[in-house]
Design a protein around this nucleic acid. Structure first.
Lengths: 210, 210
DNA sequence: CAAGATTGACTCGTCAATCTTT
DNA sequence: AAAGATTGACGAGTCAATCTTG
C-alpha cells in the first residue's frame, strides 16, 4: 500500500499548484476587479450572491444559500446589506408568500456587466496561449480526481462541492459519483412544477450572457 | 479582442473544475480526516497552524501568520487556543525576547502523524491511476497560468498566493513572475544570519517527513 | 406542525491601538 | 522610534430559537 516517496512528492506539488492557481483566480483576478469596479464597500461573498442571482435560477434565500454553500442565516444577512445598497430587491414570493424572491436592480445589473467584461478580458489574455483541447483535458482529469475523492467519502451523499457560480447542468463529477449534489437534491425534492417552467427560461437567459 | 464564445465556455468550465477539485480536497479529504482524528474541537485553520510549525521553518507568530496569509492577530489567537489544548508550547525567543517561538508538544506530534498517514493513504488511492507524468504536466500548466495572472496584477509585488503548507523552495510561479512572494520578501529582509543556520536544519528535517 | 426567512449569541477573521523589548 | 505580540471593537459566518405562512 505504501507508495513510492517520489509519487508522494509529485502529489504534494500537484496539490500545491492547484491551491496556488485557485488562490490566484480568487485574490488576483476576482478581488482586484471587484475593487476596481465597485471600490471597497462590497465583499467578494456579497458580490457572489449577486452573481448567483444573475447567472443561475436560484432566486430565493434558501436557493442562494444552498448554491453558495453558506447557511440561510448568512445569505439572509448578506441580502440585507445588498438591499440597503440598492443592489438587490426583495419581492414577496408569488405562489408561496413565505419565500422571498431576490431581484437585481438596474444598478447591480450595470455593475455585473462591467465586472464580467473585465474578468472575461483578463482571463482571455492569460488563457490565450493555451489551446482549448489542453484545458478540456485538464478539466477532465480534475473532474475524475474530484469524483474519486467524493466516492471515498463516508458521507458522499451530503457533500457539497461548492461549484457555486460554476454550476453545470451536465456535471461530470455528478455523473461519475452517480449522485446528485445537495442543490440538485433539494431542487428535485421540493420544486413545484409551477415554478419549473419559469426557471428554465431564466436560467437559459442567464447562461446566454456568460 | 473579443474571443470566441466557445473559448469562453471552455475557460469557465476549466475554472469550475479547478474550484470543485480544490473544494473536494479541503472539504472531503482534509475536514473529514481532521474530524476522524481529533473530533470536533479543532478548526481546520487551527490545525493548519500546527502543520506550518511542523513542516516549515516558520516558528514565530509573525512567520506563521505570513505563511498562512492571515493577520498576526489571528495567528496569535489561534496559537492561544492551541496552547490551551496543550497542542502547542510558547517559548520565549532565544536571541530576541520579543519574539515567541512556537513548539509542538508530544500530543500534537502524534496527532499530526496520524493525520498525515490517513491523508497520504486516501490521496494515494485516488491518484494511483494517474501517471506521475500527467500530474507533473498539469501542475506545470497551472503554474504557468498562475504566473500569468500574477503578472497581470497591478499590485504584483504585494500578492500572496497562499501556498501555505505547499510552500516550495523552488517555486515555478516565483521564477516565472521574477519576484519573491510576501514570505520570501520578509525573510530575506529581516532574518538575521544567526537564525539562518538553525532554521536550515530544522526545515530540512521537516521536509524529510513529508 | 413544517418550511422559509429572520434574529441573537457566539466563533474566527480583520484592523487599530497598546505593551514590551530592541 | 521600530518591531513582535497581544487586546478590543467590529464584520461575516455558524447554530439555535423565533416569526410568519401553508
Amino acid at each position: 500500500m505504501a507508495r513510492n516517496p517520489r509519487d508522494s512528492q509529485v502529489i504534494h506539488e500537484f496539490l500545491g499548484s492547484v491551491q496556488v492557481f485557485s488562490s490566484a483566480v480568487k485574490n488576483v483576478v476576482e478581488k482586484e476587479i471587484l475593487k476596481a469596479v465597485v471600490g471597497d464597500d462590497l465583499t467578494l461573498s456579497q458580490f457572489n450572491l449577486l452573481k448567483m442571482v444573475a447567472l443561475t435560477d436560484a432566486r430565493t434565500i434558501s436557493d442562494v444559500a444552498l448554491f453558495l454553500a453558506v447557511s440561510k442565516a448568512a445569505a439572509s444577512k448578506a441580502a440585507d446589506k445588498l438591499v440597503r445598497r440598492s443592489l438587490l430587491r426583495r419581492v414577496e414570493g408569488k405562489p408561496d408568500r413565505r419565500e422571498i424572491r431576490l431581484e437585481l436592480t438596474e444598478s447591480s445589473r450595470r455593475l455585473l456587466a462591467r465586472y464580467d467584461e473585465q474578468r472575461e478580458r483578463q482571463l482571455g489574455i492569460i488563457f490565450r496561449s493555451h489551446p482549448a483541447a489542453v484545458l478540456r483535458r485538464t478539466a477532465y482529469l480534475l473532474d475524475h480526481l474530484s469524483a474519486g475523492l467524493v466516492n471515498q467519502s463516508a458521507r458522499r451523499e451530503e457533500v457539497c462541492l461548492q461549484c457555486g457560480v460554476y454550476f453545470r447542468d451536465r456535471c461530470l463529477v455528478r455523473q461519475l459519483t452517480r449522485r446528485d449534489c445537495f442543490y440538485m437534491n433539494r431542487r428535485s425534492r421540493q420544486k413545484r412544477a409551477a415554478r419549473a417552467a419559469e426557471t428554465v427560461e431564466t436560467a437559459a437567459a442567464g447562461r446566454k450572457k456568460s
